[in-house]
Write a protein that binds this DNA or RNA. Structure first.
Lengths: 136, 136
DNA sequence: GTTTATGCAAATTCTTTGCAATACT
DNA sequence: AGTATTGCAAAGAATTTGCATAAAC
């Protein structure tokens, strides 16, 4: 059983060609992807609408998580730390202004923040922008 | 001279009805706004396209800054700390999952992060999600 | 066989561009 | 008067929804 199948059966989702293709594409690309990225790559495999629905389903089941961005495009990633059972989004994202790729820096701990009173926080996201190791 | 006029003349931008209306709307709403938010409110004042162009201009001149979001919509804000001459985006944004509003927490300092080698950072953004004081 | 996922069509929303008309200084 | 801004029209992306077909269990 491949990695994609394991992920799907873990989450009790039906194993379909489209879903495997989406997971495989994320596994092959370590940076965050948009729906149009997937659509371009998988146009021979499945429909545009199917990709939207797969993304929705994967978000609900904790296979994908949203990645913050400043340019108004919604990005998604399948992080190392999210491939096993505990799903935690609390990590740092780095967007390279040269290659445009956003990657998850799982190894960097999220710093603690002192919030104003009466604010409760459920999710932390940090987005750094600059030049990545490859482009510098 | 009103607040909007001061901001525009500080940046050596022409003072027009549309631009004043956009600034006034940001001044009246302390949370981050999308272009559609502005479009809905200002449809009697100016055209949809004008709003896009004003946003672009204001971003370039440091009147507005982009606010990171996880739902694929581009948000903008006019922060307290950006109304004077030094424009700094390095602050924490908080999105309330109840009312959906994103606000700038200017008073909270951005924590320092130890990055991997060969990464250089130009911009820091932090997005917290949870429940704000008003909604809790 | 039953349930769930997919494909197709179509509608909606968001964003960008070109050019003529208008408003600002 | 001269220049920058705006409005309108139109095109191009991105996203959502409904329903019939097809695939998975």
């Amino acid at each position: 059983m491949g990695a994609a199948e394991s992920i799907l059966s873990d989450k009790k989702l039906r194993i379909t060609l489209s879903r495997k293709a989406v997971i495989d594409y994320f596994l092959a690309h370590k940076h965050a992807l948009t729906q149009p990225d997937l659509e371009k790559e998988l146009e021979s495999v499945c429909d545009r609408v199917t990709i939207y629905r797969i993304i929705d389903s994967f978000l609900q089941h904790g296979i994908l998580h949203k990645v913050p961005d400043l340019d108004g495009t919604q990005k998604f990633a399948l992080c190392d730390s999210c491939t096993d059972h505990h799903h935690h989004d609390e990590h740092v994202h780095f967007k390279c202004s040269v290659c445009g790729k956003t990657e998850c820096l799982d190894e960097i701990p999220m710093p603690s923040i002192a919030l104003p009173t009466n604010y409760s926080v459920a999710e932390w996201n940090m987005l750094l922008q600059g030049v990545c190791a490859e482009c510098s």
